[in-house]
Amino acid sequence: MSMYSRIAATGSALPKTRISNAELATRLASIGVETNDEWIRTRTGIEARRFADPTLGETTTELAAAAAKEAMERARFEPDSIDLIVVATTTPDMVFPSTAAHVQSMLGCTGCAAFDVQAVCAGFIYALNAADAMLRAGPYRRALVVGSETMSRVIDFNDRSTCVLFGDGAGAVALEASDAPGILAARMYADGRYDEKVLGLTACLSNGKIAGSPFINMDGRQVFKLAVDGLTGSAEEVARLAGVSPSEVKLFVPHQANLRIMTMVAKKLGIPDEAMVKTVSEHGNTSAASVPLALDAAVKANRVKEGDLVLLQAVGAGMAWGSAILKWRANV
């Protein structure tokens, strides 16, 4: 039995098509929806996002497999050494089999455990927490944890309040059981009282038809308040459990949904702005892919070094939220 798990490497995959705010505004104008770059940027911090093209193989599964493959190769893990694959997604390509099962097949990790997690934007934190617990308990030794989304499939482009927010992509980490401290503490939370009226997508398959709305619905003001309170409180708890102060964090990787939320939480926690990873400007809100995409961007930019404290956190529909604090001990 190992006392810890650690992130050995990261990976990511983004669709080829970049849509700037100006390009999106032009598209929206063609259907009678008015917006512009300044309106989007000043309210969200978003300047562009990526939209997947299924004809190019840019599906939730393909993006997940590409990100996981990069993490696995950078960690120098052979496919047959993987014991567990957990994929967080709210936009799977099909109801079942799971995205994780398809990723397993594509990577050649035959026989390992594979399952999906559905906690919307908080999904990666939930998936990481689950994999961490399983590696600590054994007999699992190596895992791939992925967040992958094609949110462009569920955007109502007639709803200006939501259609400017979301993008597509995938991020992944290769996780390994470790006797040395890696993930120090992680916690998940949910409050089902804040249901689909606050943030939801109610569509389901019923008798061969789609029942409910196939588009995202959101009460932006309510989500903003819940996000700030939940993320601040969960960060404080994991820091306490890890025996550290949030102000000691060297790399802060919050959910990339809204720059104002991110900045407010960092300020409440006493984390300097220069420690915060900001990919929301280029990616938009990629839901469960948000945190691993941002973490991978920071790793590739050499923003984290051995022994640094790293704080990861996300919040999404449910409402669901969580944080994880770790000591960086990567293979690369």
Results as ranks from 00 to 15, higher is better:
A235F: 14
V223H: 03
A288I: 03
R221I: 02
G208Q: 10
L295C: 04
S245Y: 05
G318C: 03
E237N: 11
L241Y: 04
L231D: 00
A257L: 03
M276L: 07
S287H: 12
L231V: 04
A239N: 13
K267D: 06
N217Q: 12
A211P: 00
E248C: 01
V244L: 11
D273L: 05
L326D: 04
A288T: 04
N258T: 01
S287G: 06
V277L: 11
E306C: 11
V228Q: 06
F252V: 03
S234F: 08
L259N: 02
V249M: 09
S281G: 14
M264C: 10
K209V: 05
K209C: 11
I325D: 07
N217L: 12
I210E: 09
Q256H: 09
P214I: 08
K327A: 13
K305F: 14
A235G: 10
I216D: 09
L269K: 02
I261S: 07
S245K: 12
P272C: 05
N285L: 10
D273A: 10
M276W: 07
N217M: 07
A211E: 15
L312P: 02
V244P: 00
P246H: 13
M276R: 12
A298I: 02
D296Y: 09
I325Q: 08
R240K: 15
L205M: 14
T279D: 04
V249G: 05
V291C: 04
G243E: 14
R303D: 08
K300R: 15
N285F: 12
K250R: 14
W321A: 10
A275C: 13
E236A: 11
